[in-house]
Design a binder for these strands. Structure first.
Lengths: 118, 118
DNA sequence: TCAACGTTTCAAGGATTATTGAAATATGGA
DNA sequence: TCCATATTTCAATAATCCTTGAAACGTTGA
């Protein structure tokens, strides 16, 4: 993830509906969610959700694939991980004060991290 | 850091000049930089840098303090760490796929992390 | 083929954000 | 007190982004 992509990603996440969409899609995992289901859960109109989905896709944070009549959106885990990495490493120069809270979270969610630390 | 703060922070970082400012201030550490020095390095006009500095301060990512005639800006490491944490934990639900790259960075920049993992 | 469904596209309008240059403010030194 | 320095504020304009509803598109089943 380079600076240009990071700028787009930050822009994408700076809007409430879009942040909500990303959170939904992260939770829903590889199965993803259809545009209509996202619109319903986010309580916005179909055309509006479509606008935001396009914006998120343009930023690379989500991907789409047609499944019969529906269009299924999924979170792009790699891009999200890349953004976290950018924020810690490129933007924040790997400063321990900034990385420390991240390390705690990483320790919680990735129990096999002790190995990676060798 | 709650969602509202995160939205503001993402918005603040989604603009090239502002991202550049944050990077400068992270590198310059606790000493910070004067507004004029930031403007010169970023190659933008004083009034424009002032606009972006205000925006960043509003988001909580930087702080200011007057030092004689200059106004010194410093990065808010706590807020930046909070944003990384929000992105990993709240937004991305601590998914290992997203946290893994962060764990690597954390391992590099925080050599004493083995202790924290106990 | 036709109708219904799920979704996107488009154009228009409103809202927010960015840029610019001139004027105002605050500080320190002569 | 007056001037120079460092910075902010303000008003105007330009640019970007968001929302809305109507129309168009692709897909499926009758």
């Amino acid at each position: 993830m380079d600076q240009r992509q990071a700028l787009n990603a930050f822009g994408a996440l700076s809007q409430e509906t879009r942040l909500q969409i990303v959170r939904m899609l992260v939770v829903s995992g590889p199965d993803g969610m259809a545009a209509g289901a996202i619109a319903e859960k986010a309580e916005v109109s179909p055309s509006n959700i479509s606008f935001h989905l396009k914006e998120l896709e343009r930023s690379g944070l989500i991907a789409q694939q047609r499944e019969s009549r529906s269009i299924i959106y999924t979170a792009n885990y790699e891009a999200l991980g890349g953004l976290v990495r950018f924020l810690m490493e490129d933007c924040c120069s790997g400063h321990p004060e900034i990385c420390a809270p991240a390390a705690e979270v990483a320790a919680c969610c990735a129990p096999k991290m002790e190995e990676k630390l060798q």
